[in-house]
Design a binder for these strands. Structure first.
Lengths: 343, 343
DNA sequence: TTGTATGCGTTATCAT
DNA sequence: ATGATAACGCATACAA
């Protein structure tokens, strides 16, 4: 039925017995073409199975209707749901979504930068705390871009995410209300804005409760399960233990729970543990993890909406959209163990 | 430093005081250009920050150096590692990788089909059991394609994955060796080839051991955690219980373990549970899950290598590459409970 | 060794 | 309402 080569606009024009200009018009501005010819064209399109060559179109137009989403780690349990939010919003505005995976590798980032420089994508969503393109980016012109889930460190790029500081504050306040005073913060040493903001919430809560500095413990991890496990190993070598582990994210909390479990402790009886993100796994663990919910699809939706606005207006309506973080109380928090509280 | 518009080959040519043809040659066939001019050109490139417009190049060439990876569910815990294997192999051959996420939606699939029809990708990797493009695909010309992780049902497309039948066979044989006879298979009702192959391994093992049909139980699930949980609910309503749950994948096994745990049973003392895939989470659970390892990055590597071979030769060297599935023995399997064995 | 000119498939401008 | 044509940025056949 179809030739070996995909049909072009010329094939359609020939069959419909019109010019290629008319075919193009019949497709994009049908009101400017007579009913009779429009019919002929659409029949010809059906016969040939014509699909407009998006590449040629973009070359001519100087823009495309694809959005590139760049992520350093596509396995991040937060990524998939945010992506769905991004995609649904893009789609309802006639845009498609393509994903670039950099594996935290600048060379790979450059590849996607070339993609962008060829106008193969009209806009950019950054699921990463730093621009993933290496140093050349500083001078390079980026298309309209929006950061998501985590503020972009070195970009001055509009951002959509949850209010990390307030979320962390809600967690400490819960811990404080349960009677904890010695709360360790298992964090992330990388210069990630989202994590430092969560740390700010931790400090603010402790300040407000009048908890002195020497009761606070900070562990610099890297946000992985292994990092959480390592944290309890390290902390158990110190002379003074916390009664609660407040973790920068759920992955870390899972690691902490594994580490504590391996030492034979019961959560929450012996220690309380909290996370941040409400990753799917968080509700399946035992005990189920008390954490902060990320409104992931909503974040994606807002981020894409903001990007599309940028695409048409050129000006960002706002530079940062912070969504409300909800506390999800499950079973990993209880009053501090008597065993540790006095000592 | 740079103009508002990206530099074109003409900008480079003007500054280097040569023709655009020479610039093009200096880039792609440097041996065909004099040393002196080559130097001028590369200086001009440095000055302008020129990057070749990949879109225009592909339009002219009729092919691109991007590979599209299409996945229905990017959150699949198997996806990320396979992707890494795909990317590394592609990269070492000068190809880039772009990901399309269909969410199991044919309309979204069509979008990526248009992308392919515009020659914006030279080849296609399918991380999905069925062609995700709806019915139009039958007539559409696809670029060279390779299925990965799961055979493509309706395509006649070369495939790279683990030997599902043999893997499942290893699992039953372990269960049988532990003394189990009543082994339930918690499967997947969808017409997925990978799953039906695993089922074949189950049956083959039981046949070989002479386990009669009325001792076998099949539960048709859908491969999700929830499906595993549901399976134990259903099975407990029957009069006769298995001593082991052999699950079609790790997700299902996790659900089964959650369901069993909720009923107060201990694994593996009361029941044995096995999975398939060796998802990262499998080793973190308690008890750690006995399962079959998927050599994920290796699968990705082979699949991409096969695709690139297709791209140059046009003929697939082989139509199916089956990798060896290794049994990972952890703590979720033991001898059948006396409580259940006699009945 | 280098330059000129054509075409890849579109869309938009300008005529008609 | 429709058609001829230029241009988007590039690679290459053909000339020089």
């Amino acid at each position: 039925m179809s030739n070996s080569n995909p049909a072009t606009i010329e094939d359609v024009a020939r069959i419909a017995e019109v010019s290629i200009a008319t075919v193009s018009r019949a497709i994009h501005t049908p009101e400017k073409v007579a009913n009779s010819t429009r019919l002929k064209v659409s029949q010809a399109i059906a016969i040939t199975g014509y699909t407009t060559n998006a590449m040629a179109r973009s070359l001519r137009l100087g823009r495309s209707n694809m959005i590139l989403v760049v992520a350093p780690d596509i396995g991040d349990p937060n990524f998939s749901n945010i992506l769905v939010g991004l995609e649904n919003e893009a789609r309802s505005h006639g845009y498609g979504v393509l994903i670039g995976h950099t594996q935290n590798d600048a060379q790979r980032g450059l590849e996607y930068l070339k993609f962008l420089n060829s106008n193969q994508a009209a806009g950019l969503i950054l699921f990463t705390g730093i621009l993933p393109f290496g140093h050349q980016t500083m001078t390079a012109r980026l298309p309209p871009s929006v950061g998501v889930f985590e503020p972009v460190f070195n970009g001055g790029i509009p951002y959509v995410g949850v209010d990390d500081t307030e979320g962390a504050r809600k967690v400490v306040d819960l811990l404080l209300a349960e009677g904890h005073r010695k709360i360790a913060f298992i964090g992330d040493s990388r210069t990630r804005l989202a994590y430092s903001r969560r740390r700010m919430g931790y400090d603010a809560g402790l300040d407000a409760a009048g908890v002195p500095n020497d009761l606070r413990t900070i562990f610099e991890g890297d946000g992985t399960i292994e990092s959480g496990r390592l944290a309890v190993e390290q902390l158990f070598m110190r002379d003074t233990l916390p009664t609660a582990f407040m973790c920068v994210n759920d992955q870390t909390a899972i690691g902490v729970m594994i580490g504590l479990g391996a030492r034979g402790y019961d959560i929450p009886r012996d220690f309380s543990v909290t996370g941040f993100d409400d990753v799917p796994q968080a509700s399946f663990m035992s005990p189920a993890l008390t954490t902060i919910r990320q409104p992931r699809t909503l974040i994606g939706k807002h981020a894409m909406a903001l990007l599309l606005e940028l695409l048409s207006d050129g000006q960002p309506a706002e530079t940062e959209i912070l969504l409300r973080p909800d506390l999800v109380v499950r079973n990993s928090v209880a009053a501090p163990s008597r065993q540790w509280i006095k000592r």
